[in-house]
């Protein structure tokens, strides 16, 4: 069961059980929906941007442990970052969960999701909220669908 513990680390189980910033954000300037038809995960992200800085990120939705924990961790990581930094972080995170890079200190807690690289079908769960944030920041109105 060691493999499973690599995927479902304590931090992930904790964020799944008690997701952070799990609410609507009245003051949001951007929002977008994401949908993963494979497992039925649905997420809505709310972002408040002021002068190219992310003041707050929240999310709501329903999903597997990987997508919920990833969304929760994402909200804690993005708060206070500039939009450009957020995009860079998504790139690094994507490389991490697809096995194209090793965890680095810049990624902080996001590194706990590195185990996803051994489960190709779960990469979409881990990146769903990130895709939705990106769509929100680009004012995309169509829901993001990962499949």
């Amino acid at each position: 069961m060691d493999n499973l513990r690599d995927l479902y680390q304590e931090v992930i189980l904790d964020h799944n059980k008690r997701p952070r910033n799990f609410r609507m954000l009245e003051s949001c300037t951007h929002r977008a929906d994401g949908h993963n038809p494979l497992c039925g995960d649905r997420v809505t992200v709310f972002v408040e941007v002021d002068d190219a800085v992310i003041k707050a990120v929240t999310f709501q939705g329903q999903g597997c442990a990987i997508s919920t924990a990833s969304a929760s961790l994402m909200t804690t990581m993005l708060t206070g970052k500039t939009v450009a930094e957020a995009e860079r972080l998504f790139g690094q995170f994507y490389d991490l969960v697809t096995g194209h890079s090793q965890p680095s200190s810049a990624m902080g807690k996001l590194a706990v999701l590195a185990g996803v690289r051994d489960y190709p079908s779960r990469v979409k769960c881990a990146t769903l909220a990130w895709h939705a944030v990106q769509a929100a920041l680009h004012n995309q109105t169509e829901p993001v669908v990962t499949e």
Partner: peptide, 23 residues
């Protein structure tokens, strides 16, 4: 309760148990 079917299927798979999770 409290566990998404997709997580169930992933954990099962590690025990060699193949099931379907989804719609």
């Amino acid at each position: 309760d409290g566990v998404h079917p997709h997580d169930i299927a992933t954990v099962f798979d590690q025990s060699g148990v193949a099931i379907r999770a989804g719609h």
